Amino acid sequence: MENNMAMEYPMFCYQCEQTAGGKGCTKMGVCGKTPEVAALQDLLIFQIKGISCYAKEIVEKGENVDKDIVSFVENCLFTTLTNVNFDADVHVELLRRSQEIKEQLRSKVGAIKNTTEHATYNLSSTKAEMLQDAKKAGIMYDQDLDPDIRSLRQTIVYGLKGISAYGHQARALGYYDDQVDNFYIRALEATTDDNLSVEELIRWTMRTGDMSVAVMKKLDEANTEVYSNPTPHKVNVKMKKGPFIIVSGHDLKDLEMLLQQTEGKGINIYTHGEMLPSHGYPGLKKYKHLVGNFGGAWQDQQKEFDSIPGCILMTTNCLMRPRETYKDRIFTTNVVGWD
């Protein structure tokens, strides 16, 4: 029954360049996202907007929101980014955690001026009910909303999702920017405020761009301080004899952990896709079993992974539907996942 209810949900996802016909996916995501997952992602964004309505009160007092809450909001934004997580059960668990956090903040903050449904909504108990509730969280809801307001709100949210990808990686290395952390909260709350004009939302959109630059600066600081400044480096692109693991994505911390755990085991490590630049960092290329790069861009993974006998580790936002030929050998880390 739940699957049928999910299919009734009016899916409309247009957050990436892969969308069907360049206009949006309405039946099934080109990336493999189901209407059910799309609905749960809409509701998850709806929930962290509600969390932000309460957390904003803390920011307005000049205080920093608890970093565990910021990390949760950041991870939720990142989870809903393209090619990150396709597992409905993971989204249900995140939704349940979001309600716990919302209730904690309600108790701490008390009554607030923002009485939007994002703030007042309480999560339903079952997945089937959540999928029904998600109808009011998607972009198809509230057809009377000014299209310019809708567009600017969506632009801000998608900007925040991009920021979260960099922020997530920096935080994994112990680095963060309080300004960016507070902006997650303030900007998400702003997208719920019906009193904001087009001009005011344009200013919020511009600030989102500023925060994108700030978070990239913080990630660069994290990567270079932990792994030293990268330098041009020749990379082997031929497979060597012996067992191997291919690692794809962007997260240098995940790569480092894999290198540490496989050192001295006779296992070769190859990068794939966006992980290629890691070969330039002294702190990573010191590992002799980081022997080269396999394949090309992330979108070629299904074809490239089709016949290889080794294991694959996917980090960050590079996952596509695994083929039957390798689905028993592909693994994911952190917020990344397939059901």
Rank of each mutant, 00 (worst) to 15 (best):
M1D: 09
M1E: 10
N3A: 13
N3K: 14
P10S: 09
M11K: 04
Y14K: 14
Y14M: 12
C16M: 04
E17A: 15
A20W: 14
A20M: 13
G22L: 08
G22C: 07
K27E: 13
M28L: 14
V30N: 08
C31S: 08
A38W: 00
A39G: 07
L43F: 01
F46C: 03
G50M: 02
I51Y: 00
S52K: 05
A55N: 03
A55S: 07
K56L: 12
I58L: 06
I58D: 04
V59F: 05
N64S: 13
N64Q: 11
F72N: 06
V73H: 01
E74Q: 14
N75K: 14
C76G: 07
F78A: 12
L81C: 11
F86R: 03
D89L: 11
V90L: 06
V90F: 12
L94V: 00
R97D: 12
R97F: 04
S98L: 03
I101V: 12
K102G: 02
G110L: 06
G110I: 07
I112P: 07
T115H: 09
H118S: 07
T120Y: 05
S124P: 01
E129C: 09
M130R: 10
Q132M: 12
D133S: 09
D133Q: 10
D133I: 04
Y141E: 12
D142T: 08
L145H: 02
D146T: 06
S151L: 11
S151P: 00
R153T: 09
Q154E: 15
G162S: 10
G162M: 06
Y166S: 15
A170M: 09
L173Y: 04
Y175S: 07
Y176V: 02
Y176L: 06
V180I: 12
N182E: 02
A187E: 03
T192D: 08
N195H: 14
V198W: 01
L201S: 01
R207V: 08
T208F: 06
T208A: 10
G209P: 02
D210S: 14
D210L: 14
D210E: 15
A214Q: 11
V215W: 08
V215P: 01
M216A: 13
M216K: 14
E221Y: 00
E221D: 12
P230L: 08
H233L: 10
K234G: 12
K241F: 02
I246K: 00
V247P: 04
S248V: 00
G249E: 02
L252D: 03
E263P: 01
G264R: 05
N268L: 03
I269T: 06
H272T: 06
G273L: 03
M275A: 11
M275V: 08
G283P: 02
Y287K: 07
H289G: 01
L290C: 10
L290V: 07
V291E: 03
F294V: 09
G295L: 05
G296P: 00
W298K: 05
Q299K: 14
K303D: 13
E304M: 09
G310F: 06
I312R: 03
T315A: 07
T316H: 11
C318A: 15
C318H: 12
R323A: 12
R329L: 01
R329P: 06
I330K: 02
I330Y: 00
F331Q: 09
V336S: 11
D339I: 09
D339S: 15
